[in-house]
Structures are given as C-alpha cells and as structure tokens.
Design a protein around this nucleic acid. Structure first.
Lengths: 114, 114
DNA sequence: TGACATGCCTCGAACGACAAAGTAAATTTA
DNA sequence: TAAATTTACTTTGTCGTTCGAGGCATGTCA
C-alpha cells in the first residue's frame, strides 16, 4: 500500500520539510498543505509521511519543537536548529548533484559508448 | 546496508536503464559502466542494483533478452520492447514533474503561506 | 444534530536500493 | 606458468522509507 506520487520520492519529504522550515517555523498540518503549494501541486504528502519525518528530524537534533495551544487545540511548531540547517544544505547539494546527473543522462544524445 | 549514493535514488536505476536501452541494446555489465558515464559520475550503480532491475523489467515485458556468446563468455543483451518504450516515456514525464516541483520549492522565495 | 475542518498520532505493508559474496572463464602480468 | 585482475552474471539479506488507512479530540458551521 505505497504509491500515489510514484517513484522518485526517496529523501524528498525530508528535503521539503527542511526547506519549508528554513523559511519560518511551522506546524505539521500546515506543512502538509504547504508542500502542495510550493511544489506547484506536483507533490502531495499525507500526514502519515510528514509526521514521522518531523519526529525523526527532531530526534536527530535537526529540529526543535515547541507546543503552543491555539484556540483550544494544540499545535506543535517546529524550527530548524543549526544542525538542521546544515543538513538542509547538504541535502540540497546532494539533490542538485543527483538531479543534474539524471538530467545529463536524459538529455544526452544517444549512445555514449562505455 | 543500503546507501552510498544517498537519498533521491528511488526509481532512478530503472529510469537510467530504460534510458540507456532506448539508445541501443546493451548487456548488464556494460550498463553498470555506462551509468557513470552518462550521469557525469554523479551516479554509480552496482551490479546488485542493475541486474535485479534488468530481470524485473524483462519479467514485466518491458525488455527482451538475447543471449550471445562472445569470446567464450556469455553476454545477455537487452533491448526495449514497445511496452518498455512507453514505460520509459511515462517515467520520464513523471521525473520531470517531480523534479520541477522540487525545483520550485527550493528556488521559491521564502514563505508561501498556506 | 451532524458533517466537516483542524490537528495530532501510529500502524503495517510494500517496495526498492544496496553491499557483499559467490561462480566461472578470459586476459593480463610477473 | 602461476597469480592477479577483469569480465560477466546471479542471489541473498538487510534496511530505510513512503504510503494509506485508521484513530482520537476539539472547533465551527448548517
């Protein structure tokens, strides 16, 4: 029972979460909605993806969580630590490397003999 | 024991294999070497990745295999079927969609309020 | 009253990438 | 000629991750 955004998704939820939190502190439910917006509807991630990513990043020290009661409901706001920021930068570089490698492969003229 | 090319790799081996075979027929070991070349060294896939992909694609009808003895050794050449070609096109479109969504997210100016 | 939105959480399944190791023959090198 | 390297294919097992579905509780709007 996986798959809706087909392939090409590994590492992407984490990258997007870090990207959003690099701009401002946000809470989980908000991130779920924001992902759609910032990716021009290309990518949609459910809560079952976002929350585990958030918890994992927090546990590893990349995020800091702050609980805030708002209108009787509780929101958990996350923000980047410095560790999170460097992780974001590393992943961004990695993404650039990989995606441009693939771009080369896809756009290269036919055969490149080994 | 996963990870060397870290994240962002899901679906990529299959895409690259299809891409290479769209240009010419090739055998497994050759594909392993070619991947490095066509991705400008950005991506390197071992035999433990390539061969299973090849077998899976063959089983699903995307590839056709032809055994050829060469210098006493046996090579298994693979080529794309029409099913494989349309799969390649579909995956390419999907890759473009996803990668440009991510690009939007990464390059967008800060906050985009939900 | 009910339906829907907000907000959090967790489970289990399915998939797929990967390293490592194994086999075997040809080629190269010492 | 013996040893090491390269070619070539294969399989096993592990591990991380995404994902849908479900559950819970409160608030708002009809």
């Amino acid at each position: 029972m996986a798959q809706t955004n087909p392939p090409f998704m590994s590492g992407v939820p984490e990258l997007l979460v870090l990207r959003l939190l690099a701009g401002q502190e946000m809470y989980g439910y908000e991130i779920v909605r924001a992902v759609k917006l910032v990716t021009d509807e290309a990518i949609s991630l459910g809560e079952g993806v976002i929350y585990p990513v958030l918890h994992g990043l927090e546990k590893s020290g990349a995020l800091r969580a702050k609980r805030k009661p708002v209108n009787g409901r509780t929101r958990v706001y996350y923000s980047l630590t410095s560790k999170g920021r460097s992780r974001f930068e590393r992943l961004t570089r990695e993404w650039d490397r990989v995606s441009s490698g693939i771009h080369s492969a896809l756009s290269g003229r036919e055969h490149a003999k080994a």
